[in-house]
Design a protein around this nucleic acid. Structure first.
Length: 482
RNA sequence: GCGUAGGUGGCGGAGUGGUCAAUCGCAACAGACUGUAAAUCUGUCGCCCUAUGGGCUACGAAGGUUCGAAUCCUUCCCUACGCACCA
């Protein structure tokens, strides 16, 4: 009996693992299935080491959107299989700068901005992942999750400056204070975010530093041809566009990250990212091989298209659904995607089984199901994942009332203003409309409706009594007296 | 280092002394139609001003010529391509 049960479980685990390794996966590089075997062994309790999974975070845009969530949700599945996720915050790489950006920002300012972004980013993580936080809400090193930043090893001590001489001090058990020289490693640790530098890293700091010499010894194994074989680089060269050396170095630096992580955690078993990151992640394999370590497996997740149904979801194209969006916003945004994008959204953004997806979309093709209803099911499910069932139902109800029955929603944003203030001023001041010129255009286009029905015609109209405005397609707003 | 071609609005790309806030395409926004889908059609698309008009800021940067400059001159910065240098 027991033996049969054991068999059954084994098969279940194996199916689960297969599913985790395929669903939503665009590319998986795992020669000889060595990573898969680790997963199996872990599930069976025969693998005692941690399975470390690296995810590189770009902190230039801290909002997590549904596209990122595709990867995060995959990471969650790995957590459930017993793996440890390590976020590698690419703050150093970000700081070197995106060459397409025109502005030359001062590093100190940049560093602050990055710091803020790191916070924002990490604050959202537990929408999907299992993390441990201390009473202050800061993420602490846990069995299933931790994070680190590559500036920890790419900065040299000489890169550190201190505001005001002797600003940094340490205190011993006898409450005696000692100034810390700004050039010391400790000062660096204190300076950098005051601070959570990985304890394990601090202990071994000196051994993991990525010195210029070390970097060069890696570089001498990688040829120019290997680097520029990347599509993106080829396109640029053919297009007569500039390609800077540091950009070519990016993949290698990312690879060095994997290598350092393997030093710190004992291994770096898998790196996950979008399919657009596969080249970079493969470079991690290469660097690890050069350093004579077991190379990481690489998993490239399919890229989720944005609301336009064409380009990949990204903040810069403003075609994204943020995890911080309200249930109503989220629901509405999902409804606005083109029908063709539905399959992909089901596969990448929900837990709906393959069979269920096929059934639903089969119904749409045959005409038995209204595409709208399939999409509503999709929207409901996505909202449910991030906000819960109740919120999802409310959002759906409100969507129906607002857009199918054309009623003004009950809880809308409220702006308060003094009586007699021109509406234009209130809306621009409240950040609803970017400029007064834009306000005038909207008025001319009859795009602002009072009470949801009558178009506002007078651009100079002043605020006289509580009113509800509909601006454009989906912006509702109430103005109340101050 | 030398030479050639360039640097214009979110992107592509016109314009080479006044009629240029800058043709056009894409993107975006709004209206109509709809399922807040797609497609289509129409309008808008630097900022400010109670405006069929006026003002301000902008064509890599800084100066200059001119009544007047995105357009001419000078210097500087940046990019691509070629040559040279170096092997």
């Amino acid at each position: 009996m027991q033996r049969m049960n054991g068999h059954k479980e084994e098969r279940d685990i194996s199916t689960t693992i297969n599913d985790v390794l395929t669903r939503g996966v665009g590319e998986l590089i795992d020669p000889k299935d060595s990573f898969k075997e680790k997963l199996l062994a872990k599930a069976q309790g025969t693998y005692s080491k941690d399975i470390i999974i690296k995810f590189g975070v770009d902190v230039t845009r801290p909002d997590i959107h549904l596209g990122h969530a595709v990867v995060l949700r995959k990471l969650r599945q790995f957590q459930d299989l017993g793996c440890k996720i390590v976020f590698l915050i690419g703050d150093f790489t970000t700081l070197i700068g995106d060459p397409t950006g025109k502005s030359k920002v001062r590093p100190e300012i940049d560093q602050k901005e990055i710091e803020k972004n790191v916070r924002t980013y990490l604050d959202q993580v537990d929408k999907v992942l299992l993390v441990n936080r201390d009473p202050n809400g800061d993420i602490i090193d846990g069995p299933r999750f931790t994070w680190m930043r590559n500036s920890d090893w790419f900065y040299g001590v000489t890169d550190i400056s201190v505001e005001g001489a002797g600003a940094i001090t340490i205190e011993n058990e006898r409450k005696e204070k000692f100034p810390v020289p700004s050039s010391s490693f400790l000062a660096k640790a204190v300076l950098y975010e005051n601070t959570r530098m990985q304890k394990s890293f601090l202990k071994h700091s000196t051994t993991y530093g990525v010195s210029f010499v070390n970097l060069l010894s890696i570089l001498r194994h990688i040829s120019f041809a290997q680097l520029i074989e990347r599509d993106m680089f080829q396109d640029r060269i053919k297009g007569g566009e500039p390609l800077f050396v540091h950009e070519m170095l990016y993949p290698i630096i990312q690879g060095a990250d994997s290598n350092v992580m393997a030093d710190i955690y004992g291994s770096c078993d898998l790196e996950i990212g979008g399919t657009d990151q596969v080249f970079n992640m493969l470079m991690g394999r290469r660097v690890m091989e050069i350093a004579q370590k077991e190379p990481q497996a690489v998993m490239g997740m399919k890229l989720l298209v944005g609301l336009d149904g064409k380009d990949k979801m990204s903040k810069s194209l403003d075609n994204y659904i943020s995890l911080l969006d309200s249930p109503e916003e989220m629901y509405g945004k999902v409804m606005s995607i083109p029908d063709q994008a539905m399959v992909e959204y089901f596969e990448l953004a929900t837990y709906t089984t393959k069979e269920e997806i096929e059934r639903l979309l089969g119904g749409v093709t045959s005409g038995a199901t209204n595409p709208r209803d399939a999409k509503m099911a999709l929207a409901r499910q996505i909202v449910e994942i991030y906000h819960g069932r109740k919120e999802a139902e409310t959002a759906e109800k409100q969507f129906i009332q607002t857009f199918q029955e054309k009623r003004v929603p009950e809880d809308v944003r409220v702006l308060r203003a003094k009586l007699g203030t021109p509406l234009s001023e209130i809306l621009v001041g409240g950040g609803i409309i970017p400029s007064k010129s834009e306000f005038r255009r909207l008025v001319d286009a009859r795009a602002i409706k009072v009470g949801g029905t009558d178009a506002l015609k007078d651009p100079y109209q002043k605020f006289s009594a509580t009113m509800t405005l509909k601006i454009g397609k989906h912006e509702f707003l109430r103005i109340e007296a101050l």
